[in-house]
């Protein structure tokens, strides 16, 4: 059994008097896709912001490779190898593929003050990185990012993260705005990232997408981990029900609220 790369141990987060996350305990291992499921307002975004250094936990520990760490800024998290890709790719629509791929770490040629941006090399590396991830339609690094399809932009952003040595990839609803075919592209890339040994945290609403790539699922309800289970432990119907807020969701919610009321605000341990 491999050790987890990233783990949260009893993480709480409050904004002023509002408690957003309760005793979150989660871990993700290399080569594993953790699907984070939950309705809007369940605390998914806050949770990924804590993992990527945008917010700091009010209490609890973040561990990387078993060592407690803290991420005061997104930069520190990024340097530790945590890379977040947002719904719209977080890239620059009016920049070329090569230039946007290397923003902040531009390859140069030449010497001293005459160092110039090496467009050819940047384009070649960027195109190769994207193609290696399985998107073969991108062949010209001078193309503007805004001219790519949503799926291609996601793929470019993921390829960028992988190229620059990300170990944990946080994907914030990467397939939410995409059509079926484009979503398939993105899922294929998620699988490729997983095959390369990255730990992937995949946030989604779509059960089909979660089932297609997920190894491990965690359902957030009202800021607490309501269910934490491995692939195959629940049927698609059960997961859909959990996510879509069906009968089991309603009972879980009631159960959690009841438990928290009687346990000093602590949520119950997640169901297996």
């Amino acid at each position: 059994m491999t050790a987890p790369i990233l783990a949260l141990r009893g993480v709480n987060k409050s904004f002023g008097p509002i408690d957003v996350l309760h005793d979150i305990t989660l871990e993700v291992k290399p080569g594993e896709v953790l699907c984070l499921l939950g309705d809007n307002g369940a605390g998914k975004s806050t949770l990924i912001k804590i993992m990527s250094g945008v917010h700091q936990p009010s209490s609890g520990v973040i561990e990387m490779d078993g060592q407690p760490v803290s991420f005061p800024t997104p930069r520190v998290a990024a340097e530790a190898g945590i890379s977040t890709v947002h719904q719209f790719g977080g890239t620059f629509p009016l920049m070329s593929i090569g230039r946007s791929f290397f923003v902040g770490v531009e390859p140069t040629k030449g010497w001293g003050p005459f160092r110039v941006y090496d467009r050819k090399r940047a384009n070649a590396i960027a195109v190769k990185a994207v193609q290696d991830m399985g998107i073969t339609r991108i062949t010209d690094g001078d193309r503007l990012v805004g001219g790519l399809s949503g799926g291609e932009r996601q793929s470019l952003a993921i390829a960028r993260a992988v190229h620059f040595g990300a170990r944990v990839l946080i994907l914030d609803e990467p397939t939410a705005a995409l059509g079926v075919k484009q979503a398939t592209h993105v899922l294929r890339i998620v699988n490729e990232a997983k095959r390369r040994g990255l730990a992937v945290i995949f946030i989604t609403h779509q059960v089909m997408h979660a089932m297609a790539v997920g190894d491990h699922f965690a359902v957030l309800i009202r800021g607490a981990v309501a269910a934490d289970f491995k692939k195959g432990e629940k049927t698609r119907e059960e997961i859909t029900d959990l996510m879509a807020g069906g009968a089991s969701m309603a009972s879980l919610e009631a159960e959690i609220e009841g438990y928290m009321a009687s346990h000093n605000g602590h949520p119950p341990p997640p169901a297996a």
């Binding site: 997104p74 930069r75 990024a78 977040t84 977080g90 890239t91 620059f92 629509p93 009016l94 920049m95 230039r99 946007s100 290397f102 923003v103 902040g104 770490v105 531009e106 140069t108 160092r115 110039v116 941006y117």
Partner: peptide, 23 residues
Amino acid sequence: FSPFGNWIFAMGGDKVSARNAGI
């Protein structure tokens, strides 16, 4: 031609992403 130019374009394209990219 210099790498700094790229930063200016990145900033105008998406300031948050640019900052997260270390600019």
